[in-house]
Design a protein around this nucleic acid. Structure first.
Lengths: 141, 141
DNA sequence: GAGACCTTATCAGGTGCCCTTACAAAATGT
DNA sequence: ACATTTTGTAAGGGCACCTGATAAGGTCTC
C-alpha cells in the first residue's frame, strides 16, 4: 500500500514536471510547490501561512521564497499591518506560471480519467480528500 | 490532485514509521524501503534486481544495503552462479524486521478501512494498482 | 582462446529538500 | 515598562537520491 501510494505520487509528479519543462517555466522544481500550492494568487500570503499550509518549517519555506524571488516569480513586500511581516506576492510572471501549473495539473487528472476510468479517478479523489480532511481533526492537543 | 497524493503518502508513511519506532527495529528509515520492498525474503536478491524494482540506481541501493548490513539486517554473500554478483540476504534479525514491517503496513491499511470505509479503501487500492500496472506498459522503447 | 563488449558492483563527489538551533526585531499583554 | 509571543532570517546538518568513473567477472564472436 505504501509502495502503491509512492508509485502513484511519483508517476503524477514526474509527468507534471516533464510537461512543465516544455513551458517557459521550466526552472520550477518540486520543492517550489510549498509556495505555489499555498499562496493566495491575488493578494499574496505571509511566510507563516505558507509554512503552516505546507506543514513545513518557516526556514525551509523562506529559502524557497528567496529562490523564487531570485527567479522572478514572487516578491516580498512589507506588510502594512505588521512591521515584522512581509507579504509574499506573485509577480506577473509568477501568476503566469501559477495558472500554467494549475492547467497542467488539471490536464493530467483528465488524462488519468481517460486511462484509468473517470469513475475510478473520481473515487480516488474522494478517498484522498477524506484522508486530507481528517488530517487536522486528528490532533487532540 | 498532486497535493492530495502527497498528503496521503506522507500520512501513511509518517504513521508507519511512528509505529515502527516503537518496535525493536526503530532504526529503520524510509530510505531502507528500497531494499525491504524488493528483496526476496527467503533466498535474497541481487543488487541489480533491487535497483530495478525500486526504480533507483544501483549506487543508491548499494549504499542502503551497506547501511543495513552495518545494522545487522542484511548480509552480502557471493553469488555461486556469477563471480561478479553478490546476493543480498536477510539475516534472522532482518527477517524479523521484514515481517514486523509487513504486519504494520497491513494493520495501517485496516485502520484506514475503518476510518474511511472499507469500500473506499478497496477502491483506492484498485486505482493505485491500475496506475502501478501501467507503469511498464507505457514505455514503447 | 583472445579481443571487444556487456554486466555487476563500488568509489567519489554532488544536488535537492527538509530539519534543528539560535537570533534580532516588532507586536502584544499585563 | 517589561515579559512574552510572533515574524522572519542565518548557519549548519542529515537524508535520499543522482552522475561519472572504474575494477573485475561474464559473454560473444571470430
Amino acid at each position: 500500500m505504501i509502495r502503491l501510494l509512492g508509485v502513484a505520487f511519483d508517476q503524477f509528479s514526474e509527468e507534471l514536471y516533464r510537461r512543465l519543462a516544455t513551458t517557459p517555466y521550466s526552472d520550477i522544481r518540486p520543492g517550489h510547490g510549498c509556495v505555489f500550492g499555498g499562496i493566495d494568487p491575488e493578494s499574496g500570503s505571509r511566510l507563516t501561512e505558507l509554512a503552516e499550509r505546507a506543514m513545513m518549517t518557516k526556514q525551509t519555506v523562506g529559502e524557497v521564497v528567496s529562490d523564487l524571488e531570485q527567479r522572478g516569480y514572487v516578491e516580498r513586500v512589507p506588510d502594512p499591518e505588521d512591521g515584522r511581516a512581509k507579504i509574499i506576492r506573485l509577480t506577473p510572471r509568477g501568476r503566469e506560471a501559477y495558472v500554467a501549473g494549475r492547467r497542467l495539473i488539471d490536464e493530467l487528472e483528465r488524462d488519468w480519467a481517460e486511462r484509468f476510468g473517470a469513475d475510478r479517478v473520481a473515487a480516488l479523489r474522494e478517498v484522498l480528500e477524506a484522508v486530507d480532511a481528517e488530517r487536522f481533526g486528528a490532533v487532540p492537543a
